[in-house]
Amino acid sequence: MGNVNCVFCGCIEQASVGVVEKWGRFDRLAEPGLNFWNPLAGECLTGTLSTRINSLDVKIETKTKDNVFVQLLCSIQYRVIRQNADDAFYELQNPTEQIQAYVFDVVRAHVPKMNLDELFEQKDEVAKAVLEELEKVMGAYGYNIEHILMVDIIPDASVRRAMNEINAAQRMQLASVYKGEADKILQVKKAEAEAEAKYLGGVGVARQRQAITDGLRENILNFSHKVEGTSAKEVMDLIMITQYFDTIKDLGNSSKNTTVFIPHGPGHVRDIGDQIRNGLMEAASAKDAE
């Protein structure tokens, strides 16, 4: 540990403790700083121990309850207990191997009782079990276990791929449900919009026809009063001829013309007028019969 030893004195570094023997037997612990001993009386500095926190990474391979092989990376933080440094110095020759052996034993006793999902959820429970066992065992050898961290759980590569595929399938299924609900809402709203549009269109057509009827009635009355000797039938024929030519004009001015063959001549217009008039009369008769 970089100690500077003299014949009668030596320096112990900070965060370290020295072990002093007398005639080959443990005598006392030397604190950090300048220490004196008497070689003539058989005293000597045998060695030093660091009281800093040490970290040991242990990788364990084991199997879960559902027969999945996993690798666990466990980080153990430990330190020498200053008051029991003599036990740590004399009892254990290789403390890291001892710690690693107990970690292997505890982990392989607990993990096979858990499924893979439970292991991910309860990894802190495994760390707690390891901590309790190590504190009980290593405390007798002068070591204190500060923390134990389950750094990583690594399943087999094929298992990781399967887990990712399961997760992706579940998310796709959920996305399909949401997409179906969205399409359903869209179709319902579209149907509602079409129904509303048709209703408003029907109202518009009804108002248009009412306006046309009112206009025709007003025109017939005005024409009959202003032009003497004319009957309502003659005025209706005149209006029908005017609308007939307006229709022909609109068809000719349309930018998207389609050839339409229409019987042409005043006689045909008179026939259309007679048909409309007969239809109105039949409707009136049916209404009176009721």
Rank of each mutant, 00 (worst) to 15 (best):
M1R: 05
G2F: 09
G10V: 05
E21M: 05
E31K: 10
W37T: 04
R52I: 00
I53D: 10
L56R: 02
D57Y: 06
V58L: 09
K59L: 09
V70C: 07
Q71V: 09
L73D: 04
Y78Q: 02
R79F: 08
R82Q: 12
Q83G: 01
Q83V: 01
A85N: 02
A85Q: 03
D87I: 04
D87S: 13
L92H: 00
D105A: 12
V106D: 01
M114Y: 06
L131S: 09
E133I: 01
L134H: 04
V137Q: 13
G139Y: 01
M150V: 10
D152I: 03
R160Q: 15
A162E: 14
M163A: 15
E165C: 04
A168V: 08
Q170A: 11
S176R: 14
K179C: 05
E181M: 13
A182N: 07
K184Q: 13
L186C: 04
V188I: 06
K189W: 02
E192A: 11
A193Q: 12
A193T: 08
E194S: 11
K198S: 10
G201Y: 11
V203D: 02
L216G: 06
I220M: 12
S224G: 00
E234V: 07
I241N: 03
D246Q: 13
L251W: 05
G265Y: 08
P266R: 07
D274Q: 08
M281L: 15
A283I: 04
D288I: 15
